[in-house]
Nucleic acid binder design. Structure first.
Lengths: 229, 229
DNA sequence: AGTATCTAACTAACCGGTTAATTAGTAATG
DNA sequence: CATTACTAATTAACCGGTTAGTTAGATACT
Protein backbone atom coordinates (compact mmCIF):
# COMPACT_ATOMS: atom_id res chain seq x y z
CA UNK A 1 0.00 0.00 0.00
CA UNK A 2 2.32 2.72 -1.24
CA UNK A 3 0.95 6.03 -0.22
CA UNK A 4 3.13 8.77 -1.72
CA UNK A 5 6.47 9.75 -0.31
CA UNK A 6 5.00 11.07 2.90
CA UNK A 7 4.17 7.59 4.12
CA UNK A 8 3.77 7.53 7.86
CA UNK A 9 3.52 3.94 8.84
CA UNK A 10 2.48 3.74 12.46
CA UNK A 11 -0.62 1.56 12.76
CA UNK A 12 -3.19 4.20 13.40
CA UNK A 13 -3.04 5.14 9.74
CA UNK A 14 -6.69 5.81 9.48
CA UNK A 15 -6.74 9.27 10.80
CA UNK A 16 -3.74 11.37 10.10
CA UNK A 17 -4.30 14.89 8.96
CA UNK A 18 -7.96 14.25 8.58
CA UNK A 19 -9.85 16.26 11.14
CA UNK A 20 -13.41 15.26 10.39
CA UNK A 21 -12.48 11.64 9.94
CA UNK A 22 -10.80 11.63 13.33
CA UNK A 23 -13.60 13.53 14.96
CA UNK A 24 -16.20 11.18 13.51
CA UNK A 25 -14.19 8.17 14.60
CA UNK A 26 -14.04 9.51 18.12
CA UNK A 27 -17.75 10.18 18.16
CA UNK A 28 -18.63 6.73 16.86
CA UNK A 29 -16.33 5.05 19.34
CA UNK A 30 -17.86 7.19 22.06
CA UNK A 31 -21.37 6.11 21.09
CA UNK A 32 -20.39 2.50 21.56
CA UNK A 33 -18.50 3.05 24.76
CA UNK A 34 -21.16 5.21 26.36
CA UNK A 35 -23.86 2.77 25.28
CA UNK A 36 -22.09 0.04 27.16
CA UNK A 37 -21.75 1.60 30.59
CA UNK A 38 -23.12 5.10 30.53
CA UNK A 39 -21.03 8.13 31.19
CA UNK A 40 -19.78 6.84 34.50
CA UNK A 41 -18.53 3.54 33.16
CA UNK A 42 -17.16 4.77 29.87
CA UNK A 43 -13.36 4.95 29.74
CA UNK A 44 -11.75 7.72 27.77
CA UNK A 45 -8.78 5.45 27.16
CA UNK A 46 -11.09 2.89 25.60
CA UNK A 47 -12.74 5.47 23.38
CA UNK A 48 -9.40 6.73 22.17
CA UNK A 49 -8.17 3.23 21.53
CA UNK A 50 -11.28 2.23 19.62
CA UNK A 51 -10.99 5.36 17.51
CA UNK A 52 -7.30 4.61 16.83
CA UNK A 53 -6.42 7.98 18.22
CA UNK A 54 -4.44 9.35 21.09
CA UNK A 55 -6.45 10.13 24.17
CA UNK A 56 -5.35 13.74 24.18
CA UNK A 57 -7.09 14.20 20.88
CA UNK A 58 -10.41 13.73 22.63
CA UNK A 59 -9.60 16.82 24.61
CA UNK A 60 -8.50 18.62 21.49
CA UNK A 61 -11.94 18.26 19.97
CA UNK A 62 -14.06 18.18 23.11
CA UNK A 63 -13.83 20.15 26.30
CA UNK A 64 -14.13 17.15 28.56
CA UNK A 65 -15.86 13.81 28.92
CA UNK A 66 -19.21 15.44 29.60
CA UNK A 67 -18.92 17.58 26.50
CA UNK A 68 -18.14 14.52 24.41
CA UNK A 69 -21.13 12.79 25.92
CA UNK A 70 -23.39 15.68 25.00
CA UNK A 71 -22.08 15.57 21.45
CA UNK A 72 -22.91 11.88 21.32
CA UNK A 73 -26.44 12.52 22.56
CA UNK A 74 -26.95 15.27 20.02
CA UNK A 75 -25.84 13.08 17.17
CA UNK A 76 -28.03 10.19 18.26
CA UNK A 77 -31.15 12.23 18.77
CA UNK A 78 -30.96 14.56 15.83
CA UNK A 79 -30.56 11.59 13.54
CA UNK A 80 -33.41 9.68 15.14
CA UNK A 81 -35.75 12.64 15.27
CA UNK A 82 -35.19 13.56 11.68
CA UNK A 83 -36.11 10.10 10.43
CA UNK A 84 -39.12 9.79 12.68
CA UNK A 85 -40.50 13.21 11.89
CA UNK A 86 -40.30 12.48 8.22
CA UNK A 87 -42.40 9.33 8.70
CA UNK A 88 -44.86 11.27 10.82
CA UNK A 89 -45.27 13.97 8.21
CA UNK A 90 -46.21 11.53 5.50
CA UNK A 91 -49.65 11.24 3.90
CA UNK A 92 -52.47 8.92 4.80
CA UNK A 93 -55.10 8.42 7.46
CA UNK A 94 -54.21 8.73 11.14
CA UNK A 95 -54.18 4.94 11.28
CA UNK A 96 -51.68 4.71 8.47
CA UNK A 97 -49.55 7.52 9.83
CA UNK A 98 -49.28 6.18 13.36
CA UNK A 99 -48.24 2.81 11.99
CA UNK A 100 -45.78 4.49 9.66
CA UNK A 101 -44.30 6.26 12.63
CA UNK A 102 -44.08 3.12 14.76
CA UNK A 103 -42.53 1.20 11.90
CA UNK A 104 -39.98 3.90 11.22
CA UNK A 105 -39.05 4.17 14.87
CA UNK A 106 -38.67 0.42 15.10
CA UNK A 107 -36.62 0.23 11.91
CA UNK A 108 -34.30 2.98 12.99
CA UNK A 109 -33.57 1.29 16.28
CA UNK A 110 -33.16 -2.06 14.61
CA UNK A 111 -30.42 -0.54 12.51
CA UNK A 112 -28.83 1.33 15.39
CA UNK A 113 -29.19 -0.92 18.36
CA UNK A 114 -26.83 1.10 20.45
CA UNK A 115 -29.13 4.06 20.54
CA UNK A 116 -31.88 2.80 22.82
CA UNK A 117 -29.21 1.74 25.22
CA UNK A 118 -27.94 5.26 25.43
CA UNK A 119 -31.42 6.71 25.69
CA UNK A 120 -32.70 4.38 28.34
CA UNK A 121 -29.43 4.56 30.17
CA UNK A 122 -29.65 8.30 30.27
CA UNK A 123 -33.28 8.23 31.35
CA UNK A 124 -32.41 5.85 34.11
CA UNK A 125 -29.54 7.99 35.18
CA UNK A 126 -31.27 11.31 35.49
CA UNK A 127 -32.88 11.76 38.86
CA UNK A 128 -35.84 13.96 39.54
CA UNK A 129 -34.12 16.45 41.76
CA UNK A 130 -30.72 16.72 40.17
CA UNK A 131 -29.56 19.37 37.71
CA UNK A 132 -30.56 18.06 34.33
CA UNK A 133 -27.89 18.13 31.70
CA UNK A 134 -30.42 16.09 29.82
CA UNK A 135 -32.96 18.88 29.88
CA UNK A 136 -31.52 20.40 26.75
CA UNK A 137 -32.06 17.15 24.88
CA UNK A 138 -35.58 16.85 26.18
CA UNK A 139 -36.55 20.29 25.01
CA UNK A 140 -34.89 20.00 21.66
CA UNK A 141 -35.90 16.49 20.66
CA UNK A 142 -38.45 14.88 22.94
CA UNK A 143 -40.95 17.67 23.24
CA UNK A 144 -41.46 18.19 19.48
CA UNK A 145 -41.86 14.47 18.92
CA UNK A 146 -44.25 14.09 21.79
CA UNK A 147 -46.42 16.95 20.66
CA UNK A 148 -46.56 15.74 17.09
CA UNK A 149 -47.65 12.32 18.28
CA UNK A 150 -50.25 13.76 20.63
CA UNK A 151 -51.63 15.84 17.79
CA UNK A 152 -51.86 12.80 15.57
CA UNK A 153 -53.70 10.90 18.27
CA UNK A 154 -56.24 13.69 18.61
CA UNK A 155 -56.70 13.72 14.84
CA UNK A 156 -57.47 10.04 14.82
CA UNK A 157 -59.91 10.48 17.66
CA UNK A 158 -61.73 13.20 15.74
CA UNK A 159 -62.18 10.94 12.74
CA UNK A 160 -63.38 8.18 15.04
CA UNK A 161 -60.56 5.81 14.08
CA UNK A 162 -58.87 5.85 17.49
CA UNK A 163 -60.15 4.99 20.91
CA UNK A 164 -60.44 7.81 23.44
CA UNK A 165 -57.03 7.32 25.01
CA UNK A 166 -55.14 9.99 26.88
CA UNK A 167 -52.16 10.94 24.68
CA UNK A 168 -50.05 11.74 27.70
CA UNK A 169 -50.43 8.12 28.73
CA UNK A 170 -50.59 6.47 25.37
CA UNK A 171 -47.47 7.97 23.84
CA UNK A 172 -45.07 6.60 26.46
CA UNK A 173 -46.78 3.23 26.33
CA UNK A 174 -46.38 3.09 22.59
CA UNK A 175 -42.75 4.07 22.71
CA UNK A 176 -42.20 1.48 25.41
CA UNK A 177 -43.50 -1.29 23.19
CA UNK A 178 -41.37 -0.15 20.29
CA UNK A 179 -38.15 0.25 22.21
CA UNK A 180 -38.18 -2.23 25.05
CA UNK A 181 -37.51 -5.30 22.95
CA UNK A 182 -34.03 -4.15 22.10
CA UNK A 183 -33.09 -3.67 25.70
CA UNK A 184 -34.50 -6.98 26.82
CA UNK A 185 -33.02 -8.82 23.86
CA UNK A 186 -30.06 -10.31 25.75
CA UNK A 187 -32.44 -11.87 28.24
CA UNK A 188 -34.69 -13.18 25.50
CA UNK A 189 -31.65 -14.70 23.91
CA UNK A 190 -30.80 -16.47 27.13
CA UNK A 191 -34.32 -17.81 27.49
CA UNK A 192 -35.14 -18.82 23.96
CA UNK A 193 -31.70 -19.51 22.59
CA UNK A 194 -32.66 -17.80 19.36
CA UNK A 195 -30.93 -14.62 18.21
CA UNK A 196 -33.42 -11.77 18.72
CA UNK A 197 -31.61 -9.65 16.15
CA UNK A 198 -31.83 -12.03 13.22
CA UNK A 199 -33.81 -10.62 10.31
CA UNK A 200 -36.56 -13.18 10.77
CA UNK A 201 -37.01 -12.45 14.45
CA UNK A 202 -36.91 -8.72 13.82
CA UNK A 203 -39.65 -9.07 11.24
CA UNK A 204 -41.75 -11.05 13.69
CA UNK A 205 -41.20 -8.48 16.37
CA UNK A 206 -42.00 -5.60 14.06
CA UNK A 207 -45.29 -7.17 13.11
CA UNK A 208 -46.08 -7.87 16.76
CA UNK A 209 -45.39 -4.26 17.72
CA UNK A 210 -47.67 -2.91 15.03
CA UNK A 211 -50.35 -5.41 15.94
CA UNK A 212 -50.07 -4.52 19.61
CA UNK A 213 -50.41 -0.83 18.91
CA UNK A 214 -53.24 -1.34 16.46
CA UNK A 215 -55.20 -3.44 18.90
CA UNK A 216 -54.61 -1.00 21.73
CA UNK A 217 -55.50 2.12 19.75
CA UNK A 218 -57.85 1.42 16.87
CA UNK A 219 -61.58 1.24 17.42
CA UNK A 220 -62.83 -2.33 17.04
CA UNK A 221 -65.47 -1.17 14.60
CA UNK A 222 -63.05 0.26 12.07
CA UNK A 223 -60.46 -2.53 12.01
CA UNK A 224 -58.08 -3.67 9.31
CA UNK A 225 -57.50 -0.38 7.62
CA UNK A 226 -53.80 0.02 8.46
CA UNK A 227 -50.88 -1.58 6.70
CA UNK A 228 -50.16 -4.66 8.67
CA UNK A 229 -47.73 -6.47 6.44
CA UNK B 1 -12.45 13.83 75.52
CA UNK B 2 -13.19 11.31 78.30
CA UNK B 3 -14.39 8.17 76.74
CA UNK B 4 -15.25 5.50 79.27
CA UNK B 5 -13.98 2.17 78.17
CA UNK B 6 -17.29 0.77 77.01
CA UNK B 7 -18.22 3.93 75.22
CA UNK B 8 -18.46 3.34 71.54
CA UNK B 9 -20.92 5.84 70.20
CA UNK B 10 -18.68 7.35 67.61
CA UNK B 11 -21.39 8.49 65.22
CA UNK B 12 -22.09 5.27 63.48
CA UNK B 13 -24.20 4.12 66.38
CA UNK B 14 -26.68 2.25 64.34
CA UNK B 15 -24.84 -0.91 63.83
CA UNK B 16 -22.53 -2.20 66.48
CA UNK B 17 -22.61 -5.86 67.22
CA UNK B 18 -25.61 -6.30 65.03
CA UNK B 19 -24.55 -8.35 62.07
CA UNK B 20 -27.82 -8.65 60.24
CA UNK B 21 -28.66 -5.02 60.85
CA UNK B 22 -25.35 -3.96 59.40
CA UNK B 23 -25.61 -6.34 56.51
CA UNK B 24 -29.12 -5.20 55.68
CA UNK B 25 -28.08 -1.56 55.92
CA UNK B 26 -25.28 -2.19 53.48
CA UNK B 27 -27.56 -3.96 51.07
CA UNK B 28 -30.18 -1.25 51.17
CA UNK B 29 -27.59 1.46 50.66
CA UNK B 30 -26.14 -0.56 47.82
CA UNK B 31 -29.53 -0.84 46.12
CA UNK B 32 -29.83 2.91 46.08
CA UNK B 33 -26.28 3.54 44.99
CA UNK B 34 -26.33 0.94 42.24
CA UNK B 35 -29.69 2.19 41.03
CA UNK B 36 -28.24 5.63 40.57
CA UNK B 37 -25.28 4.84 38.35
CA UNK B 38 -25.06 1.14 37.78
CA UNK B 39 -22.17 -0.95 38.95
CA UNK B 40 -19.64 1.20 37.17
CA UNK B 41 -20.73 4.46 38.70
CA UNK B 42 -21.49 3.21 42.17
CA UNK B 43 -18.94 4.21 44.81
CA UNK B 44 -18.19 1.83 47.62
CA UNK B 45 -17.33 4.80 49.82
CA UNK B 46 -20.81 6.19 49.24
CA UNK B 47 -22.42 2.86 50.06
CA UNK B 48 -20.49 2.53 53.28
CA UNK B 49 -21.26 6.09 54.28
CA UNK B 50 -24.97 5.73 53.55
CA UNK B 51 -25.03 2.55 55.60
CA UNK B 52 -23.16 4.29 58.47
CA UNK B 53 -20.53 1.64 58.29
CA UNK B 54 -16.84 1.46 57.62
CA UNK B 55 -16.01 0.65 54.05
CA UNK B 56 -14.01 -2.39 55.02
CA UNK B 57 -17.15 -3.95 56.41
CA UNK B 58 -18.45 -4.28 52.87
CA UNK B 59 -15.55 -6.58 52.24
CA UNK B 60 -16.23 -8.43 55.44
CA UNK B 61 -19.68 -9.43 54.25
CA UNK B 62 -19.09 -9.48 50.52
CA UNK B 63 -16.19 -10.72 48.47
CA UNK B 64 -15.96 -7.65 46.30
CA UNK B 65 -18.07 -5.02 44.59
CA UNK B 66 -19.36 -7.48 42.03
CA UNK B 67 -20.45 -9.88 44.73
CA UNK B 68 -22.30 -7.13 46.52
CA UNK B 69 -23.95 -6.21 43.28
CA UNK B 70 -25.11 -9.78 42.75
CA UNK B 71 -26.54 -9.80 46.26
CA UNK B 72 -28.43 -6.63 45.46
CA UNK B 73 -29.85 -8.17 42.30
CA UNK B 74 -30.90 -11.26 44.19
CA UNK B 75 -32.71 -9.27 46.82
CA UNK B 76 -34.47 -7.10 44.27
CA UNK B 77 -35.62 -9.94 42.10
CA UNK B 78 -36.60 -12.46 44.73
CA UNK B 79 -38.77 -9.84 46.37
CA UNK B 80 -40.35 -8.79 43.11
CA UNK B 81 -40.90 -12.31 41.88
CA UNK B 82 -42.51 -13.43 45.09
CA UNK B 83 -45.09 -10.66 45.01
CA UNK B 84 -45.85 -11.10 41.34
CA UNK B 85 -46.15 -14.84 41.48
CA UNK B 86 -48.62 -14.54 44.30
CA UNK B 87 -50.80 -12.27 42.20
CA UNK B 88 -50.51 -14.63 39.26
CA UNK B 89 -51.53 -17.62 41.33
CA UNK B 90 -54.75 -15.98 42.48
CA UNK B 91 -58.24 -17.09 41.45
CA UNK B 92 -60.38 -15.77 38.66
CA UNK B 93 -60.67 -15.83 34.90
CA UNK B 94 -57.59 -15.35 32.72
CA UNK B 95 -58.75 -11.78 32.15
CA UNK B 96 -58.91 -11.09 35.85
CA UNK B 97 -55.63 -12.83 36.54
CA UNK B 98 -53.63 -11.03 33.89
CA UNK B 99 -54.92 -7.72 35.15
CA UNK B 100 -54.16 -8.75 38.71
CA UNK B 101 -50.64 -9.52 37.62
CA UNK B 102 -50.18 -6.25 35.77
CA UNK B 103 -51.59 -4.29 38.66
CA UNK B 104 -49.35 -6.06 41.17
CA UNK B 105 -46.29 -5.53 39.03
CA UNK B 106 -47.14 -1.87 38.64
CA UNK B 107 -47.84 -1.41 42.33
CA UNK B 108 -44.63 -3.07 43.34
CA UNK B 109 -42.57 -0.82 41.12
CA UNK B 110 -44.49 2.24 42.22
CA UNK B 111 -43.45 1.45 45.75
CA UNK B 112 -39.88 0.61 44.84
CA UNK B 113 -38.96 2.96 42.09
CA UNK B 114 -35.31 2.10 42.32
CA UNK B 115 -35.88 -1.40 41.10
CA UNK B 116 -36.69 -0.83 37.44
CA UNK B 117 -33.64 1.37 37.25
CA UNK B 118 -31.48 -1.49 38.35
CA UNK B 119 -33.21 -3.94 36.07
CA UNK B 120 -33.12 -1.81 32.97
CA UNK B 121 -29.63 -0.70 33.74
CA UNK B 122 -28.52 -4.28 33.99
CA UNK B 123 -30.32 -5.24 30.80
CA UNK B 124 -28.66 -2.39 29.02
CA UNK B 125 -25.30 -3.38 30.36
CA UNK B 126 -25.27 -7.02 29.35
CA UNK B 127 -24.12 -7.48 25.80
CA UNK B 128 -24.97 -10.41 23.63
CA UNK B 129 -21.53 -11.87 23.30
CA UNK B 130 -20.08 -11.22 26.70
CA UNK B 131 -19.94 -13.61 29.64
CA UNK B 132 -23.25 -13.20 31.42
CA UNK B 133 -23.04 -12.67 35.12
CA UNK B 134 -26.69 -11.85 34.71
CA UNK B 135 -27.49 -15.29 33.37
CA UNK B 136 -28.01 -16.65 36.85
CA UNK B 137 -30.66 -14.01 37.52
CA UNK B 138 -32.35 -14.74 34.24
CA UNK B 139 -32.63 -18.44 34.93
CA UNK B 140 -33.73 -18.05 38.50
CA UNK B 141 -36.24 -15.23 38.17
CA UNK B 142 -37.10 -14.29 34.62
CA UNK B 143 -37.70 -17.70 33.15
CA UNK B 144 -40.27 -18.83 35.73
CA UNK B 145 -42.15 -15.57 35.46
CA UNK B 146 -42.10 -15.64 31.71
CA UNK B 147 -43.37 -19.18 31.54
CA UNK B 148 -46.13 -18.55 34.00
CA UNK B 149 -47.28 -15.57 31.98
CA UNK B 150 -47.09 -17.50 28.71
CA UNK B 151 -49.16 -20.26 30.24
CA UNK B 152 -51.77 -17.79 31.40
CA UNK B 153 -51.94 -16.29 27.94
CA UNK B 154 -52.54 -19.69 26.41
CA UNK B 155 -55.26 -20.36 28.97
CA UNK B 156 -57.04 -17.18 28.01
CA UNK B 157 -56.77 -18.05 24.37
CA UNK B 158 -58.32 -21.44 25.00
CA UNK B 159 -61.32 -19.88 26.71
CA UNK B 160 -61.60 -17.42 23.86
CA UNK B 161 -61.07 -14.39 26.06
CA UNK B 162 -57.72 -13.43 24.57
CA UNK B 163 -56.71 -12.61 21.04
CA UNK B 164 -54.34 -15.01 19.29
CA UNK B 165 -51.14 -13.21 20.24
CA UNK B 166 -47.73 -14.84 20.38
CA UNK B 167 -46.78 -15.01 24.08
CA UNK B 168 -43.11 -14.64 23.24
CA UNK B 169 -43.91 -11.25 21.76
CA UNK B 170 -46.74 -10.20 23.99
CA UNK B 171 -45.07 -10.75 27.34
CA UNK B 172 -42.19 -8.34 26.73
CA UNK B 173 -44.59 -5.78 25.30
CA UNK B 174 -46.75 -5.98 28.35
CA UNK B 175 -43.85 -5.67 30.72
CA UNK B 176 -42.61 -2.72 28.71
CA UNK B 177 -45.87 -0.86 29.19
CA UNK B 178 -45.88 -1.57 32.90
CA UNK B 179 -42.28 -0.62 33.55
CA UNK B 180 -41.33 2.06 31.06
CA UNK B 181 -43.25 4.88 32.71
CA UNK B 182 -40.99 4.86 35.73
CA UNK B 183 -37.87 5.20 33.66
CA UNK B 184 -39.25 7.95 31.49
CA UNK B 185 -40.73 9.80 34.43
CA UNK B 186 -37.96 12.41 34.69
CA UNK B 187 -38.53 13.39 31.09
CA UNK B 188 -42.28 13.49 31.55
CA UNK B 189 -41.71 15.74 34.50
CA UNK B 190 -39.65 18.08 32.38
CA UNK B 191 -42.28 18.18 29.67
CA UNK B 192 -45.46 18.40 31.69
CA UNK B 193 -44.21 20.04 34.85
CA UNK B 194 -46.36 17.71 36.90
CA UNK B 195 -44.86 15.19 39.29
CA UNK B 196 -45.27 11.74 37.68
CA UNK B 197 -44.98 10.06 41.07
CA UNK B 198 -47.80 11.84 42.83
CA UNK B 199 -50.57 9.47 43.96
CA UNK B 200 -53.04 10.99 41.53
CA UNK B 201 -50.73 10.62 38.53
CA UNK B 202 -49.81 7.09 39.56
CA UNK B 203 -53.47 6.18 39.73
CA UNK B 204 -54.03 7.62 36.28
CA UNK B 205 -51.07 5.74 34.92
CA UNK B 206 -52.13 2.51 36.51
CA UNK B 207 -55.54 2.74 34.93
CA UNK B 208 -53.98 3.59 31.57
CA UNK B 209 -51.68 0.58 31.74
CA UNK B 210 -54.52 -1.80 32.50
CA UNK B 211 -56.63 -0.25 29.78
CA UNK B 212 -53.79 -0.51 27.29
CA UNK B 213 -53.22 -4.16 28.07
CA UNK B 214 -56.92 -4.95 28.06
CA UNK B 215 -57.41 -3.35 24.67
CA UNK B 216 -54.38 -5.07 23.23
CA UNK B 217 -55.21 -8.52 24.55
CA UNK B 218 -58.88 -9.04 25.13
CA UNK B 219 -61.17 -10.04 22.32
CA UNK B 220 -63.47 -7.18 21.33
CA UNK B 221 -66.47 -9.45 21.60
CA UNK B 222 -65.99 -10.28 25.25
CA UNK B 223 -65.14 -6.86 26.62
CA UNK B 224 -65.60 -5.33 30.03
CA UNK B 225 -65.19 -8.42 32.13
CA UNK B 226 -61.96 -7.47 33.93
CA UNK B 227 -61.61 -5.21 36.93
CA UNK B 228 -60.86 -1.84 35.47
CA UNK B 229 -61.22 0.39 38.48
C1' DA C 1 11.07 26.43 -7.28
C1' DG C 2 12.84 26.68 -2.95
C1' DT C 3 12.72 27.72 1.70
C1' DA C 4 11.14 30.05 5.75
C1' DT C 5 7.09 30.69 8.63
C1' DC C 6 2.97 29.46 10.60
C1' DT C 7 -0.61 26.59 12.34
C1' DA C 8 -3.86 22.70 12.66
C1' DA C 9 -3.60 18.03 13.89
C1' DC C 10 -1.73 14.82 16.59
C1' DT C 11 1.11 12.13 20.26
C1' DA C 12 4.07 10.36 24.38
C1' DA C 13 4.53 10.89 28.83
C1' DC C 14 3.06 12.29 32.88
C1' DC C 15 0.19 14.02 37.22
C1' DG C 16 -2.78 14.09 40.93
C1' DG C 17 -7.02 12.77 42.63
C1' DT C 18 -10.02 8.82 43.12
C1' DT C 19 -11.29 4.21 44.20
C1' DA C 20 -11.50 -0.75 45.07
C1' DA C 21 -9.43 -3.61 47.97
C1' DT C 22 -6.19 -5.12 51.91
C1' DT C 23 -4.05 -5.22 56.25
C1' DA C 24 -3.41 -5.23 60.82
C1' DG C 25 -5.43 -4.50 64.41
C1' DT C 26 -9.28 -3.39 68.38
C1' DA C 27 -13.50 -4.33 70.89
C1' DA C 28 -17.29 -7.06 72.31
C1' DT C 29 -19.43 -11.51 73.50
C1' DG C 30 -20.09 -16.14 75.00
C1' DC D 1 -9.57 -17.02 74.82
C1' DA D 2 -11.66 -17.77 70.72
C1' DT D 3 -14.62 -16.21 67.58
C1' DT D 4 -17.33 -12.70 65.61
C1' DA D 5 -17.98 -7.88 64.39
C1' DC D 6 -15.93 -4.02 63.17
C1' DT D 7 -12.51 -0.03 61.96
C1' DA D 8 -8.37 3.17 60.91
C1' DA D 9 -4.84 3.34 57.96
C1' DT D 10 -2.85 2.16 53.86
C1' DT D 11 -1.88 0.69 49.07
C1' DA D 12 -1.90 -0.25 44.29
C1' DA D 13 -4.25 0.54 40.34
C1' DC D 14 -6.91 3.29 37.61
C1' DC D 15 -8.50 7.20 35.19
C1' DG D 16 -9.66 11.97 33.69
C1' DG D 17 -7.21 15.51 32.26
C1' DT D 18 -2.74 18.25 31.14
C1' DT D 19 1.56 19.39 29.17
C1' DA D 20 5.17 19.78 26.31
C1' DG D 21 6.20 18.69 22.49
C1' DT D 22 6.20 16.64 17.08
C1' DT D 23 4.47 16.25 12.38
C1' DA D 24 2.39 17.52 8.08
C1' DG D 25 0.86 20.57 5.22
C1' DA D 26 -0.62 25.33 3.82
C1' DT D 27 0.90 30.03 2.91
C1' DA D 28 4.17 33.74 2.19
C1' DC D 29 8.19 35.38 0.50
C1' DT D 30 12.18 35.33 -2.61
Amino acid sequence: MPKSKTNHRKSHLGSRRQPEVSRAAILQAAVEEFARDGIAGARTDAIAHAAHVNKALLYYYFKDKEDLYQAVLDQVFSDLLEKIMRALAGPGSPQQRILAYAGAHFDYIAENQLYPRIVLGEMTRMRLGKPHSFGRITMRYFTPLFQKLAELLRDGQKTGEFRAVDPEQFVPSMIAVIVFYFNSAPIMKLMSGKDPFSPERLAVRRAAVLDFISAALFCPSAAGKGELK
